[in-house]
Design a protein around this nucleic acid. Structure first.
Length: 456
RNA sequence: GUGGUUGUAGCUCAGUUGGUUAGAGCGCCUGAUUGUGGUUCAGGAGGUCGUCGGUUCGAGACCGAUCUUCCACCCCA
């Protein structure tokens, strides 16, 4: 055998069954997006580097796939710069384009670029691949799909409420019951940082706090100390670590803690509004949970932060996330446009549905009937009826070669084709069709109209 | 980017302290069965042992590099 070809790490091929299952998830999500009034857009798979760089933090910049310039890209670079061997200086000189890292920043670019054509509030959805130069792990790929729905041009909290309902609707439609929609608010986090005197270390503070359920209270405090948050401040956090109870109980505790922070109290008011609305609207299968330690996500969130956790029986990272960003388009020069949005992680949802065996048997829209090929004359006769079946939306095909019966039957069997039709000379003369049920093994001689009836 | 881990037939895996021609199960192909698949029986094909280099009389096994897999960090869907 010659050397086997391969694909880059963190990428995957999808076989027909996998594609069918992915399409099932995508069409379910799409249907719900449209039901909630979102319209689809698409953006290029690569953007100008300056559109993406610096939008996701230093860590994000590292994970962006850069595209090398075309042509003799090194000849334009000064020898002096080459000899410095500085990645930070050289990269922008030899790479002007980069692969899309998420769908939110390209969307912000789209809104700013097309601001005069857009009717606000603009509700768009987008289902496309994104790329990250990450190290692959379980449920982490270098090429994966995001399914985003965002609204720009409205700061109404009803949007947050609707997004929670949208999450609930999608996961209910996928029969994935018992997901937890975690919600938090950036203003609460920044209020806490303010109260403990670490306002300038908001990011370090939230990143450390986010790890609470993973590494525990002591390690979180340790990390905060290392990042320069005072022991005095950390002491004030104590109520946070023992925060428990339902939504309302937690809200009351936070109110007391944040009584001196205007920003923090505003965050609490927002959460209360959303929680009240959801309580009176009810969710179908999802649970809404307040999680003050929830901080993951990108630095541009300013209000609500969402994250969706799969049911506890499957170990999987978050299967969705999102939040409110008051000034995302500001980075591209369009101010005072508020946006809020959520994202579904298609590849992870796939793994969860697979683990819980939740794909319906009907996802593969495969061939319903195979016609056995007995030779030239018979094949033409078969194609005439196949033509009629296809017009009736019945997936039908003819085995292309005049091969041995066994081979043709075997083919139908392996492809899980439920019916086989045999038309030889005898059937042509009698103007009949021998239909074999591949599951029961029985077969009948039918007229054309009966054949169509059975297969429909 | 840091640390660890994995790689032998299409798939899942054996392979003894380094020693003839590298095995099994499943799958695949052919036949028993020239108009009947799944079950059964008989036979057969298929390997540069991830890749490159090194140690050795001799490497699937030992060493190094590299690619890949999975895991933990960082970060994230």
């Amino acid at each position: 055998m010659t050397q086997k070809p391969s694909i880059p790490k963190g990428t995957r091929d999808f076989n027909p069954e996998e594609v069918a299952k992915r399409q099932y998830i995508i069409s379910t999500i799409k249907q719900q997006f449209e039901r909630f009034g979102f319209q689809p857009i698409e953006t290029p798979s690569f953007e100008n580097s300056e559109t993406l760089m610096g939008k996701y933090g230093d860590e994000g910049d590292r994970l962006i796939f850069k595209i090398l310039n075309s042509g003799d890209y090194l000849s334009k670079v000064e020898n002096e710069i080459l000899s410095q061997k500085s990645e930070a200086i050289l990269t922008p000189l030899i790479s002007e384009k980069a692969l899309r890292y998420d769908l939110t920043v390209p969307f912000a670019r789209y809104v700013v670029q097309h601001q005069n054509e857009i009717d606000f509030p603009f509700k768009r959805y987008q289902i496309q691949a994104v790329w990250r130069a990450d190290r692959p792990q379980k449920g982490r790929f270098r090429e994966f799909y995001q399914c985003d729905a965002d609204v720009v041009g409205s700061d109404s909290l009803w949007q947050e409420v609707e997004f929670i309902q949208l999450y609930d609707s999608v996961f209910t439609a996928l029969q994935l019951e018992g997901v937890t929609i975690k919600i938090n608010n950036r203003k609460i986090l920044s209020g806490i940082a303010e109260v403990i005197g670490a306002h300038d270390k908001l990011i370090d503070f939230t990143v450390a706090l986010d790890k609470l359920d993973k590494i525990g209270e002591d390690k979180v405090k340790e990390e905060m100390l290392v990042k320069g948050i005072s022991a005095d401040g950390i002491e004030k956090l104590q109520p946070l670590f023992s925060l428990s109870g339902d939504f309302d109980t937690q809200i009351q505790l936070l109110k007391a803690m944040l009584s001196t922070s205007v920003d923090g109290l505003k965050g609490i008011t927002e959460l209360e509004f959303i929680s009240k609305a959801i309580q009176s609207l009810n969710l179908k299968t999802a649970n809404l949970e307040l999680d003050v330690t929830l901080a993951r996500g990108l630095n541009y969130y300013t209000g609500a932060i969402f994250e969706v956790a799969a049911p506890k029986s499957v170990s999987m990272g978050s299967i969705g996330g999102g939040g409110r960003y008051d000034d995302l388009t500001g980075i591209f020069g369009l101010n005072d446009i508020s946006g809020v949005g959520i994202s579904f992680g298609l590849d992870r949802i796939y793994l969860v549905l697979e683990a819980l065996n939740l794909f319906p048997d009907t996802v593969t829209n495969a061939t319903r009937v195979l016609f056995i090929n007995f030779g030239e004359k018979e094949a033409l006769h078969c194609l005439k009826i196949i033509q009629k079946l296809r017009q009736q939306n019945i997936n039908a095909e003819l085995y292309p070669d005049d091969a041995k019966m066994k081979k043709q039957m075997n083919y139908a069997n392996k492809r899980n084709i439920p019916y086989v039709v045999l038309v030889g000379e005898a059937e042509i003369n009698a103007n009949s069709f021998t239909l074999k049920n591949m599951i029961s093994g029985t077969q009948d001689s039918l007229s054309e109209s009966d054949l169509i009836k059975v297969l429909q």
